Computed example of a mutant assay.
Amino acid sequence: MPRAGLTTDRVVRAAADLADEDGLGAVTLSAVARSFDVKVASLYSHVAGSADLREGIAALALTELADLAAESLAGRSGKEALVAFAATYRDYARAHPGRYAATRVPLSADSPAVEAGRRHAALTRSILRGYALDETDTVHAVRLLGSVFHGFADLELSGSFDHSPPAAAESWSRILDALDATLRQWPAATVTAS
């Protein structure tokens, strides 16, 4: 019988908060159980194990991030949409580093996080409609944006930009200008020999 007051949502949110405070690596079933002053066995009514708990954090984070990104895109297109979308990712990563780290954990095929991940791809595609790319180039551009946003966030969170000027915010602004210019002047596909 589940302990009164514990729900899957409460367990996952507690784990997500712990991840933000101490890092995703600090999230264990034992640590989460301590936060509720219960035994680890009490959590198994709500999560199947550590992997399930991390997938729950990933689903929560991806859903929160998709909701924020959708809000930021409302009524925007072109560079304005690109900048708003990118800012949402960067701001979320800085405010919720543990949750953000969970967005890149390996997922099982039936994880709820997979559907949330699809929302991100759809939101990214909505930005790219303003750049008139064909379907294949849209896939390439989605990968480019994801690589830049995640790569910058990971480097910034690890302190990699703290050692020399200019400030990371200035680089971020220049990167977004460069991405906008690249998307506006997307190169034609080249034929390569096999």
Score class of each variant (00 low, 15 high):
Arg3Phe: 04
Gly5Gln: 10
Leu6Thr: 12
Thr7Phe: 11
Thr8Val: 14
Val12Pro: 09
Arg13Thr: 13
Ala14Tyr: 09
Ala15Gly: 14
Ala15Pro: 07
Asp17Tyr: 03
Glu21Ser: 13
Gly23Leu: 09
Leu24Met: 11
Leu24Phe: 08
Ala26Val: 05
Ala26Tyr: 06
Val27Ser: 09
Ala31Trp: 02
Arg34Ser: 07
Val38Thr: 13
Tyr44Val: 10
His46Ala: 09
Ala48Ile: 04
Ala48Tyr: 01
Ala48Met: 04
Gly49Cys: 04
Ser50Trp: 00
Ser50Tyr: 02
Glu55Asn: 03
Gly56Asp: 03
Ala58Leu: 13
Ala61Cys: 04
Leu62Val: 07
Glu64Gly: 04
Glu64Leu: 00
Ala70Met: 11
Ala70Gly: 14
Glu71Arg: 12
Leu73Met: 11
Ala74Thr: 10
Gly75Gln: 06
Arg76Ser: 07
Lys79Cys: 10
Val83Phe: 08
Thr88Lys: 01
Thr88Cys: 13
Arg94Trp: 03
His96Ser: 07
His96Glu: 03
Pro97Arg: 02
Gly98Val: 02
Tyr100Lys: 03
Ala102Trp: 09
Arg104Ser: 08
Arg104Tyr: 02
Pro106Leu: 11
Asp110Arg: 08
Ser111Met: 14
Glu115Val: 15
Glu115Gly: 13
Ala116Gly: 11
Ala116Leu: 06
Arg119Asp: 15
His120Glu: 14
Ala122Thr: 14
Leu123Trp: 08
Thr124Lys: 08
Arg125Asp: 12
Arg125Leu: 08
Leu128Lys: 11
Arg129Lys: 11
Arg129Ile: 01
Arg129Thr: 14
Tyr131Gly: 01
Asp134Arg: 03
Thr136Ile: 08
His140Lys: 05
Val142His: 11
Leu144Thr: 13
Gly146Glu: 14
Val148Ile: 15
His150Tyr: 10
Gly151Val: 13
Gly151Cys: 12
Phe152Ala: 05
Ala153Lys: 00
Leu155Val: 05
Glu156Met: 02
Leu157Val: 06
Leu157Glu: 04
Ser158Tyr: 00
Gly159Asp: 06
Ser160Ala: 13
Ser160Leu: 01
Ser160Arg: 15
Phe161Lys: 07
Phe161Ser: 07
Ser164Ala: 13
Ala169Gln: 05
Arg174Met: 07
Leu176Arg: 10
Asp177Arg: 10
Leu179Cys: 06
Asp180Pro: 00
Ala181Met: 02
Ala181Ile: 01
Pro187Met: 04
Ser194Met: 03
